[in-house]
């Protein structure tokens, strides 16, 4: 999972190997061919098909049968009927990303600067929970946050829970999303902090003699590539998720992922609108990613 740390690389690394522009392009194309073909057939082509489906029309009276068309009403329906779902998806994913950042940073910081010989063990501890199935862990949260559980018990006792319940509320969904994508935040931040020189941070400490100022002006900027990668890797899957909503969330007020899933797999005749929804979701996320990377990141993405 450490690979995720490299979604953004520093430009120095990519220019450093400029001189090795050796080799003949024919070999390069041969090496690329199988992988590119695979991505072409099982990523690009399906997306083209998805675009086509998103413009198809239904045969009236024959749910599940469609004919090719340029039916932009599907997009209109997707954007009007399901605007609240989009809003919820982005809101919950945004909150989860923020929470994950706040939770991850101290852990990544401790791993990079305080852990010493415990570092590898901590790294394993971060990854290890993810070797149990994602669904099993999410289900476990539904038990932890259940009305009869100790979390609700403690919070009610402290009078901190006006609604009386966590499970089946948006709070539980955000909690689940935060938990599920946490390592995607921790690992990139850790990787970029680990590359930073602790002496620079000490120097910052000497200059400002104030922990928070040092953090804000020295430590945080140095870890920005990791924060950037981490927020993307958390936000993107969180915005498209439907499992947390399904297992932890309320019956009404679903996210866009649930709609897409249900329209494709449960509702007969739902393909075109679901495809339009998928396409809109992808376009929105890619647009955000590129704006975000342009604003904070480096040129070369991978």
């Amino acid at each position: 999972m450490s690979a995720l740390a490299h979604v953004t690389t520093d430009p120095a690394a990519s220019t450093a190997q400029g001189p090795r522009a050796t080799g003949r392009s024919r070999t390069a194309y041969l090496l690329l061919l199988p992988g590119v073909l695979w991505l072409g057939v099982f990523f690009l082509l399906p997306l083209v098909q998805l675009a086509a489906v998103s413009l198809q029309s239904r045969y009236p009276g024959f749910p599940g049968y469609y004919y090719p068309d340029l039916n932009f009403a599907n997009y209109a329906a997707a954007l009007t009927d399901y605007a609240p779902h989009f809003a919820r998806s982005f809101l919950y994913a945004g909150l989860a990303t923020l929470l994950a950042f706040l939770i991850s940073y101290p852990l990544a910081y401790a791993m990079a600067f305080k852990a010493g010989r415990w570092r590898n063990l901590m790294l394993i501890c971060v990854i290890a929970p993810f070797f149990t199935s994602f669904i099993l862990r999410t289900f476990a949260w539904s038990q932890i946050l259940a009305d009869e559980g100790w979390v609700v018990g403690v919070l009610s006792f402290l009078n901190l829970l006006p609604g009386g319940s966590i499970i089946n509320t948006p709070v539980a969904v955000v909690a689940g999303l935060t938990y599920n994508f946490l390592p995607f935040m921790v690992l990139p931040i850790y990787a970029s902090l680990e590359r930073a020189d602790p002496r620079v941070i000490e120097a910052g400490g000497d200059l400002y003699a104030n922990g928070f100022t040092t953090f804000r002006t020295v430590t945080l900027p140095m870890s920005m590539p990791g924060v950037l990668a981490g927020t993307l890797l958390t936000f993107i899957p969180a915005a498209g998720d439907f499992v947390n909503m399904e297992l932890l969330g309320p019956q009404r007020g679903k996210m866009v992922g649930n709609v897409i899933n249900d329209q494709f797999l449960a509702v007969p005749g739902g393909y075109p609108v679901a495809a339009a929804l998928s396409f809109t979701l992808m376009a929105a996320i890619l647009a955000m990613v590129f704006l975000y990377v342009r604003r904070f990141g480096t040129e070369e993405l991978v």
Partner: peptide
């Protein structure tokens, strides 16, 4: 190891699946 035409397009083709939500890939 190589510099060739289409390198940045290939880079993009490799990056975009990681930035695409799973549900979109599944639907497609």
């Amino acid at each position: 190891r190589y510099r060739f035409r289409g390198r940045s397009a290939s880079n993009l083709l490799i990056f975009v699946p990681m930035a695409t939500p799973e549900i979109v890939m599944g639907a497609a």
